[in-house]
Design a protein around this nucleic acid. Sequence first.
DNA 1: ATAGTATATGTTGGATGCCAACATAGTCAA
DNA 2: TTGACTATGTTGGCATCCAACATATACTAT
Lengths: 115, 115
Amino acid sequence: MPISRQLAQATLRPMVLAILKNGPGYGYRIIKRIHDLTNGEIEWTTGTLYPFLHGLENEGVLRSYWAEADEGPRRKYYSLTPSGEKALERESAQWERVYTLLSRLFGPSQDLIPG
Amino acid sequence: MPISRQLAQATLRPMVLAILKNGPGYGYRIIKRIHDLTNGEIEWTTGTLYPFLHGLENEGVLRSYWAEADEGPRRKYYSLTPSGEKALERESAQWERVYTLLSRLFGPSQDLIPG
DNA sequence: ATAGTATATGTTGGATGCCAACATAGTCAA
DNA sequence: TTGACTATGTTGGCATCCAACATATACTAT
């Protein structure tokens, strides 16, 4: 069962931030990482990810630097800024809240709000 | 801390389906229900919800009927079709999978995929 | 009467955002 | 020199979102 577009889109920001928490990473690698983490169920293209990374950098949650690779073209590495670390915490808290609510709703029928 | 637009959007479909699992409901009520369930953090407008309900009915996951209210204008009640119940189960399973993955990612840094 | 509030459903158009497709380029192997 | 893989980037057409608007019932207060 594939993950819906809508849900996948909602994971993009938290996933990118969480992946970069482990250290600097570059676009092409992040796409493969997400592919692997989701067993191929989420596949971002460069048309989605690169502009998204530019946006995050513009927002100030990421910063970037160019580095030569041992092989192949040079890479643009991104890492979290302090603001990015806070953004990740906010993402995490939001997901926690939303998931808690949804799992209550998904559970057996009951009056969730009296009145 | 408000819930991001992107994340809120991803909850719309599962929330509507889950709310209707408890019995027929109508648009105006669903908007208030979601407002209450999220302590006012998610506020859908009719411009979003009504077309969305029409779409779900068109998809075949909801069916509707008109009914007079004791007071005020008549209401258009929606309820889950068998296909809608399956859709709700799929939503639930998807959220489970995605949340499990994300909470692993949100947790302490580690090699999530060896190699 | 009529103005205001709450309930209730619906549409529309401008703005936003997505992403398939395309463009460019380095490295290696056949 | 063709192809495959790595790597970054842009663009334009498409889909979607939702603020704003339109319509209507019912009750209360003035």
